Computed example of a mutant assay.
Amino acid sequence: MKIALSICFLIAIYSTVLGAELRVVSLHPLIGDLLRQVGGEKVEVIDLIGSNGDPHSFEPQAGDLADAEGAEIFFASGMGLENYLPKLEAILDGKSKIVEVGSTLPALEGSCDHAEEHDEHEHHHAHEVDPHWWHSVDLFRRAVTIVSKELAEARPENKSVYEENAAAYRKNLDALEKWVRRELIRIPRDQRKLATAHDAFQYFCVAYDFKSYSVQGLNREQMPDAVKLAELIATLKADRVVAIFPEKESNPKMLLSLTKDTGIRLGGELVADGRGMPSYEKMMKHNVETIVKGLSVK
């Protein structure tokens, strides 16, 4: 009886080790959602940045890394957004892998109406390319495959689970893409002009045929001088832009002054980085509904 119990105990331990969850770290609110969708119950996701963290200013502290003890992979959004990654890599010293999900996705640089794609192997310094690739549903769908492959490489025994979860999530994103395009039809072509607080929606513009205008640059620290602001106001007036959209994370005072000087109405708040949203799909639906409401014919 004792021998039988010992064997059962050893089998239980062995099974636990084989089925041990893969611990991974998310360095971006939307990447955390993506990891949970693909990993399911086979992955433990540690959100170092949290649902309300700002990817532009976040940098892991000692306490954060203590919370991530035992994590095998750190997932970043990439494209230069997390400029602290070299420092993090040195701290991890090979104990954990760092994956930049967006590093092999086609990148955009410059303003939306004449943005260019860059070769996937070309490297850029932080913020020379627009790192907000998740505003294209197609690119987020491609990121699903990237994440699935990375998880399967870490836990080959769970490959089929990751692939099934990825396939199911891609179907959800297919439906989301169709919904986005159907909703945007309500905006006349000549009003597809998206003026925003900072330059975070170029991928959205390229994907859905909008022209982009932004008060700030690729990050919220880049503020225009008086000359550039005057040029922007002149452009908005000349192009008959009907609304300008603030972001939940930005100070709306400058945008309010712009609306007074131009007669352009202030639209609803957009979400640039997924902060405060329960999922990627919720963020996209919120943004599209807000844009449609602000730009569609009254």
Rank of each mutant, 00 (worst) to 15 (best):
L184F: 05
A76E: 06
G94N: 13
A195V: 12
E21W: 02
R186F: 05
Q202W: 02
L88M: 04
H132V: 11
V206L: 09
D273L: 05
L65E: 06
D199I: 01
H135A: 03
P156V: 02
M1K: 05
L256E: 15
A197K: 08
F58V: 01
I46E: 00
D261E: 15
G268M: 02
P188M: 11
A175Q: 14
D239V: 04
L173T: 00
C8H: 03
V137G: 07
R220L: 01
K171T: 15
S15H: 08
F74K: 08
A115N: 13
E153Q: 13
I3D: 09
K285G: 04
A207V: 13
A62L: 13
S96L: 06
F245V: 00
R170F: 05
K149S: 03
K178E: 14
D225G: 13
P29R: 07
R181V: 13
L256H: 09
S296N: 07
L65K: 14
K95G: 07
E89I: 10
I146L: 04
L255N: 04
L258D: 02
E128V: 12
W179T: 04
S26T: 00
K253D: 12
A68R: 08
V271G: 06
G78A: 14
S257M: 11
P86Q: 14
H121I: 02
I187S: 07
A4S: 06
D225I: 02
G19H: 07
